[in-house]
């Protein structure tokens, strides 16, 4: 395994020919080209650990630009029913924290940076520094941490600095300007904007506050802002991609696997939806910045 490329900032000229382990250089390049990224979420261990490797490979091959790999947890308070059901199944199937690192290693070379989405106790228990070290060694890009705010993250900030990992914190429509500023300052890679007040899941419309939140987060200094929670259709993806650097889809993708009669059909449907979402993201009308960042 090659050494992880340590990219410390989201700005700066990225080498477009490189396959960066972290998300900043990729999003810099996309911004220059005037396109938004599709970020696809799947949980490790659904329908099985090897099955989730197949699913993630299908996700990347069908056009996901960034992978968000969920580490199953017993108490996922930011997740709605679809993801709860899938991670419950994964845990009953015996999925372990170390399986996540193994899956990262198996999918990291596929051409898309792989972020791990995890509730904080799993990393605390593993050891924050040890987890950062092993994630970097496996080729992972960093962490998305739904229940860790920067105020509580000193140990993770130090460890992610030491290992050159992204740290994706969340902002919400309820975040004050002060909190947007401190969260942006602590983030690396991109900032995850929750489109609506609520847990993950499909919704008929993407929260109208999402666009304003993205603008406010940029105004607070963020180079890249991706939008998640409630995005499920190609049309929504197009709409969100017109103003955000990335479109994060989770529950809708997981549903293709959950609802399928068998694993092979699930993967076909997952690939189908992913390519439709990718086309939706790429159909967005977005000016090329012609340079890095914004």
């Amino acid at each position: 395994m090659s050494a992880v490329e340590a990219t410390s900032q989201t700005t700066g000229a990225a080498d477009p020919s490189a396959s960066p382990a972290t998300t900043g250089p990729l999003l810099d390049r996309f911004a220059a080209e005037g396109r938004s990224a599709l970020v696809g979420y799947l949980p490790v261990g659904y329908p099985s650990v090897p099955g989730s490797v197949d699913a993630v490979r299908a996700l990347v091959d069908a056009g996901a630009d960034v992978v968000e790999l969920g580490m199953p947890y017993t108490d996922p308070v930011m997740d709605g029913p679809i993801i709860q059901r899938a991670v419950d199944h994964a845990l009953r199937g015996g999925t372990r924290v170390r399986d996540t690192l193994a899956v990262v290693e198996q999918v990291a070379g596929r051409g898309a940076p792989v972020l791990v989405m995890t509730y904080w106790n799993l990393v605390l228990r593993y050891g924050v520094e040890a987890y950062a070290r092993d994630l970097a060694a496996a080729g992972g890009a960093g962490l998305i941490t739904p229940d860790l705010i920067p105020d509580e993250a000193a140990e993770w900030i130090a460890a992610s600095d030491a290992h050159g990992l992204d740290r994706v914190f969340l902002v919400a429509p309820s975040s004050t300007p002060e909190r947007l500023a401190s969260t942006v300052a602590a983030s690396r890679g991109f900032v995850y904007a929750a489109s609506t007040m609520g847990v993950t899941g499909e919704r008929a419309t993407v929260g109208s506050r999402a666009q304003a939140l993205v603008a406010d987060t940029r105004a607070a200094g963020a180079a890249h802002v991706c939008v998640g929670v409630g995005v499920s259709t190609p049309a929504q993806a197009t709409q969100v991609a017109s103003y955000a650097d990335g479109v994060i889809v989770g529950s809708a993708l997981v549903r293709t696997l959950v609802d399928a009669p068998d694993e092979a059909t699930g993967i076909d449907r997952l690939a189908q939806l992913t390519s439709e979402l990718a086309a939706g993201v790429r159909a967005a009308d977005r000016p090329a910045s012609g340079g890095a960042g914004r």
């Binding site: 308070v77 930011m78 904080w120 739904p146 229940d147 860790l148 705010i149 105020d151 509580e152 914190f169 969340l170 902002v171 919400a172 429509p173 309820s174 975040s175 004050t176 909190r179 969260t183 929750a194 007040m197």
Partner: peptide, 14 residues
């Protein structure tokens, strides 16, 4: 102690 919750709740806790 502390506050290990989603950012969405921080404004309400404050």
């Amino acid at each position: 102690g502390g506050r290990f919750v989603p950012e969405a709740l921080i404004a309400a806790l404050d």
